[in-house]
Write a protein that binds this DNA or RNA. Structure first.
Lengths: 136, 136
DNA sequence: TAGTTATCTGAATGCTCCTTCAATCAGTAC
DNA sequence: GTACTGATTGAAGGAGCATTCAGATAACTA
């Protein structure tokens, strides 16, 4: 079997025509720096994971579309899971910074944050661009 | 136990001071329209789910940070999973429209799409705003 | 042709995590 | 105080998914 490093050496040789150890080392250094930059903040991955679940995604979407904040009892009929599941989902959304919570007596009001709005906008923008391409 | 509708009725009564059936019906109609708008395109949820996995997230991040396309053998050493897992992950990213694939002989080059770039930008923007708030 | 290379695909297992049930927590009304 | 309310929390079972191994594929080389 070919090791990862031997494969990288052949790749560099292919791209440069020929290659010496220094060329391979340089490429390796570039890749390490790249990884450092990319993994500098692993903090945003949980945000994506939270929105990957259908219940949480739907709740976040509704809150993003709504003009104002919504109560739990208004959100519950919009998703087909138990009251407890809704509460769990909303807590996860709050923890991820995608939703804000406000208490008023026995009622809890939730609203979407700028982070959620921005992510949905980016996702929708990407989706529309994709359909434009496929329409051509 | 309280039904969802009875709770909604009490909420409307609380907010309006008093309430009749028409008020509750109106609120219900608003909520249904809201749900229709929010769930119009469920297409972007898989995108978030794909980025929720650490291996796929890292690969997508590296490709987004890199100036140009990268080969599989360059990506493999950056994540701590098998060669097969990298291939699976890259396929999932391509299917989700987050990454593009180009064949050149035996080499496959991957690059991030505008969709991925936009999502990461939105996530990073949200994260920086959050830190600003907490810094105050 | 046969052999190698880089990468992909499919099946299976192990693990994560989503949902539910039950109990509990804060508020409110009496 | 007790009896309600809306909502949350914790534990547990089950469904789904990520990884791995094994084998396959397409392209290059001798």
């Amino acid at each position: 079997m070919a090791t990862a490093s031997s494969r990288l050496r052949r790749l560099v040789a292919d791209e440069l025509g020929e290659c010496c150890d220094a060329d391979v080392d340089r490429r390796l250094t570039e890749l390490e720096r790249l990884a450092d930059d990319a993994f500098a903040d692993d903090a945003s991955r949980p945000v994506f994971a939270v929105l990957g679940n259908e219940t949480r995604y739907r709740l976040a979407r509704v809150l993003a579309v709504a003009d104002d904040e919504l109560c739990v009892c208004e959100l519950e009929p919009l998703v087909d899971v138990s009251e407890s599941a809704v509460s769990h989902a909303l807590s996860d959304l709050v923890d991820a910074g995608l939703v804000s919570r406000r208490k008023d007596g026995n009622w809890r009001y939730y609203d979407s944050t700028d982070l959620a709005d921005g992510l949905f906008a980016a996702a929708d923008r990407g989706a529309s661009e994709e359909s434009e391409v496929s329409d051509q």
